[in-house]
Amino acid sequence: MAEKETKDLQVKEKQAVATPAEQTRAGLVFTPAVDIFETDRELTLLADLPGVKKDGLTIDLDNNQLTIVGEVSPPEGSDEVVLLREYQTGRYFRQFALSDAIDQSKIEASLADGVLRLDLPKVEAAKPRKIAVKTG
């Protein structure tokens, strides 16, 4: 295979959490694992949301607070008997505070293979600019 050795993946239990708001619906709530990285021009957020369909995903932006909620309906059929259960399904919930440097009107979201990608471009003023020095 590849020349460089790949690390073996270790099991990470899904983290069930208590959300700040009281839950009115029954069910478990999990924190999705996220990557957030920043370049000069934008901030990118990747979140693992396995089992979340496009219709079940809600992304809210309110007062610089970005909320991601992903609903997962149990995939099992009604007459299936559980033999082994290592993970539970439920809702994914995570909130982030955005800085003013983000151009909130240009945020783009896409969902593929259970991974949400949010592109958060920075506003023009926040982008670093190189100023050429003229010699005269």
């Binding site: 993946l9 270790q10 996220v34 990557d35 957030i36 990285f37 370049t39 000069d40």
Partner: peptide
């Protein structure tokens, strides 16, 4: 994806499994 990125969070992991 990019070369010059600053990571704020890095919770997702890559690797092989069997």
């Amino acid at each position: 994806e990019h070369k010059n990125v600053k990571y704020h969070r890095r919770e997702r992991e890559a690797g092989s499994f069997r």
